[in-house]
Structures are given as C-alpha cells and as structure tokens.
C-alpha cells in the first residue's frame, strides 16, 4: 500500500521537478516591444544590434522581448494591460488610441523626429507570377473575376493603409469625390474572399494557400513574401499612386515609469534613427528616413506618387469617419455579403 502511494506521490513530484520556476534572471534590462505583424524580422535583427550598442555605452545588456499581431489588436492588448515598454505600431492612430487612455502622454509624436516614424513604407500589389490578370493600377482590382486579399481594417493597421490608398486613388481620378471613392472601396471589398485579422495572415492566405489574384500588402511584406516564400511564384506590382505609410513608435510612459525603464526604452527608439539602424531598416525593405541609408537603397524602392495621412485629415478624423463602429467601413462592408 505504502509503496503504491509513494509511486503516486513520486510521480507528482517528478512532474513538479521537471519545471523549475522561471529561468534565472538575466543581467541588465528587459524591454517589451509590442509591434505589428510585418516587423517580426526587422526587430529580430535590430534587437541584438541595440543590445550591443547599449553595452557599448557602458550599460549592462538588454533583452528585448517581442509581441506581434494585427496593429489594432496589439494596441488594445496594451490598453488591456500588456506591459509594453515601447510600441512600434503600424500607424499613429493606434498609438493615439493608447494615448487616449492615458498610458502615453499626448504629443508623443513630437518626441522623436519625423512624427516619431523612423521608417516608412507604402502599399503595393503582390500578384501571381506573370501577372495573369494584368493588374497594374487600382481600378484593375475591381475587374470582373479578380479576387483581392487584404486583412481586416478593424484589426490591422496595414489594412487601414490599404483602404485609404484605394480611397485616395478614387479621389484623385477625374470626377473623383467622396461618393465615387466610397463606391470604389465598396466594390473593392466585394472582391475580397478572405479577411484575416493581421497582415501576416493575409500574406499566408495569398502565398501559401494560393487564394486570390492580388494581395494588397506593405511594400516590405511584399518583398519578404517574394524572398521567403515565392521566388518565381509571386511578383510585386507597384501602382502609379499609393499612400505613404508611416509606422510610428512611442515609449509607453505609464509602463516605463512603473518599471523604471524609461532611459533604455527611449534609447531603444532613438537608436532606430542612427545610420546603421537605418541601413538595417532598408535591408528589411522599409524605406529609411536617413538620406545616406536611403541613397543606398534608392534602386530598390521605386518612386511613385504618394499621399500622406494628412491629406485625409489625420488619423483622428480618418478613424472616426471610416473605421470606428458605425463608420464608413461598417456601412460598406456589412451588406456586401455572399
């Protein structure tokens, strides 16, 4: 009897012993960078560089942890208590949402150069090899039989840039107005067979699952998709017009004040603007702000006509009109079923 009991208790102890509580504390600081989908590879490369730089400045090392997902969703996680020291999101609007709840001081976009957006990107098309549907420009997206893949603007930052680029293209056409833009975007979403919650999900849907004729993608995500998944399977089409996407970064004041990590968090973001980092940014297919780095990648990034978010009245207004509950997107998307 006793023997059996010991076996049972022993096996329980074994289970417990197999999992020592947490790893031993590492020296130096820990940062949590809450980011959006397509930056996974960029920050994976950047974090060790920053660690080296931080050590070079005479500090103990820094371990940076990453969380990725749809930009809107990530912002809400931070609002919900995800203890991010820094947020590096797809658009300023999402950081505004966090600031609105008091976690980040207002005016955050003035704290770093270039509206706190250390790199930019734009929205391009990713099509099947040889571009069988002949997609060159925005109006081609709503041609008969064309299926468009984009994530959900409610949860994805990239999708909001997609949406605005489409809207902006319709506006700039002769006779363009809010009404024609709305009609165009409505029609565009009728051509969308799958709506993932993040940019990465959409890329997988398009490239890996073979769904759709064209993916509306971040330029960097498109390059990455070609490189990682589909050399000879997909190719990039740059439309004549698109939008200047400015992924913004900010220190989360409430968290860093609680943790006492403000200095390292601030340095983490500032170092993004340093020239070597800017080259790294270019290597990961983001458009660098630094002119020297930008010149190095000049051939990689074609020039095209770009609107900025200011042309649309800024994120606050855009969010309210288009993406909030009961906004334009809800109105045009809900009835377009089947």
């Amino acid at each position: 009897m006793l023997g059996r009991r010991e076996v049972l208790l022993g096996s329980g102890a074994l289970v417990l012993a197999g999992c020592s509580p947490q790893q031993e504390p590492e020296p130096g600081a820990r940062l949590l960078n809450v980011s959006y989908d397509p930056t996974r590879e960029l920050y994976q490369a950047y974090n060790p560089r920053f660690d080296a730089e931080w050590r070079r400045q005479g500090h103990p090392g820094v371990t940076v942890e990453q969380s990725h997902g749809g930009s809107g969703r990530q912002a809400r996680s931070v609002i919900d208590g995800l203890a991010a020291d820094v947020v590096t999101l797809a658009l300023a609007g999402d950081i505004d949402q966090i600031a609105k709840r008091g976690l980040i001081a207002t005016g955050w976009e003035k704290r770093l150069p270039f509206n706190s957006a250390p790199y930019t990107s734009t929205i391009v098309f990713l099509v099947r090899q040889g571009n069988p549907k002949g997609i060159r420009d925005w109006p081609d997206l709503i041609k008969e039989g064309v299926q468009v893949i984009t994530p959900n603007p409610k949860t994805s930052g990239g999708a909001r840039w997609n949406y605005l680029a489409a809207w902006g293209d319709a506006l700039r056409r002769p006779g363009g107005s809010a009404a024609t833009a709305r009609a165009f975007v409505t029609e565009l979403f009728r051509h969308v067979p799958v709506l993932d919650t993040g940019a990465r999900g959409s890329t997988t849907t398009f490239v890996q699952r073979g769904i759709g004729d064209v993916l509306l993608a971040w330029e960097n995500e498109a390059f990455l998709a070609v490189e990682e998944l589909g050399p000879g399977k997909v190719e990039i089409v740059v439309p004549p017009y698109s939008i200047l996407a400015e992924p913004s970064v900010a220190v989360v004041d409430r968290v860093v004040d609680q943790k006492g990590s403000r200095a390292v968090a601030q340095a983490y973001l500032e170092f993004l603007y340093a020239e070597p980092s800017q080259v790294l940014v270019g290597e990961h297919y983001y458009r660098p702000r630094n002119p020297v780095a930008a010149a190095r990648f000049a051939t990689r990034f074609p020039t095209l006509e770009l609107s900025t978010i200011a042309d649309f009245g800024g994120w606050q207004q855009v969010q309210q009109i288009h993406f909030d509950d009961g906004g334009v997107f809800d109105a045009i998307y809900q009835p377009s079923r089947r």
Partner: peptide, 24 residues
Amino acid sequence: SGHIRGRTNTLPLHVEILYNEYNF
C-alpha cells in the same frame, strides 16, 4: 496570452506564431 515570444507563449501558441512567420 500577450503572445510575447519567450515569455507568455505556450507550445500551441508557439506553433501558431511559427506558422505565421512562414516557418512551416
């Protein structure tokens, strides 16, 4: 889970993350 790699990522969630990183 906040999907923080190395911190709040359990194995099944790690499967999803790898899947989303093209690391099939």
